[in-house]
Amino acid sequence: MPVDMELEAVLRPIQYPMPPYPPKYVVLANGKKMVIRQAAREDVPAILKSVHPCLFIERDYYDVVSARVYGELLAWYRYRVKSAYCLMGQVDGYLVGIVNGRMEDEKVGMSYHTLAIDRGLRIGSHLFAAKMEYHMEYLNQEEVLIVAESPIGFRRWMIEYPLEETKIPHELGGGDSYRLTREIYFKAKPRLVVGDRPVPQDLMDEAMREVKFADDDTIRERIAGLKGR
């Protein structure tokens, strides 16, 4: 598609400088090691292939969350969102989950979504924690505004941390924002934020070599769990 760079200069939002998220790895309950690393903008088309099958899964609001993630990543890919980022989890090279968000300004972070593509291993919890770690420890922000769009998200974020209620509207347009402050984050960190750095070279090489994707049916099976029928 032709792009008019003169007009793009007007349409593209400003970007705050964003230090990179240093990759880490987490040992999961099944013993597999999940590498959590920052996605590059160039990774987006490939990531969207994994998000696409989730658009058609009603269970646990996967359809809503996936549709929004799809749009958010596409907007980031095509320079239509300010200071956005995406972190992804990979096991044996396969994409198992993604989280994304952005900087509203230098002090305030805006959490977007958490999408676990493999379930039952607390992948969403680990990835959400990595997202908060990025905002607090690498972007050095004062607070992150968060909403949940599924009961699972509400339980994992609002209750487990626990987050602070506010009356601040969230840009996703749903309920009012909940807030993660630095105090809440560092208090919750010992029980919710884990991971080791540096990532062993062989693990990192495997993650970087290729972002692998399970096929559509496997993804639906993992998420919707329609086993045996």
Partner: peptide, 26 residues
């Protein structure tokens, strides 16, 4: 067991030995 709800083997490191178990197995 094809009739089982949970068809996932656990790993001792992931749920017990590793410091990461604090999240995996709270």
């Amino acid at each position: 067991n094809p009739y089982a709800h949970v068809e996932m083997a656990l790993d001792r490191e992931g749920v017990f030995d590793s410091p990461h178990a604090v999240v995996n197995n709270p």
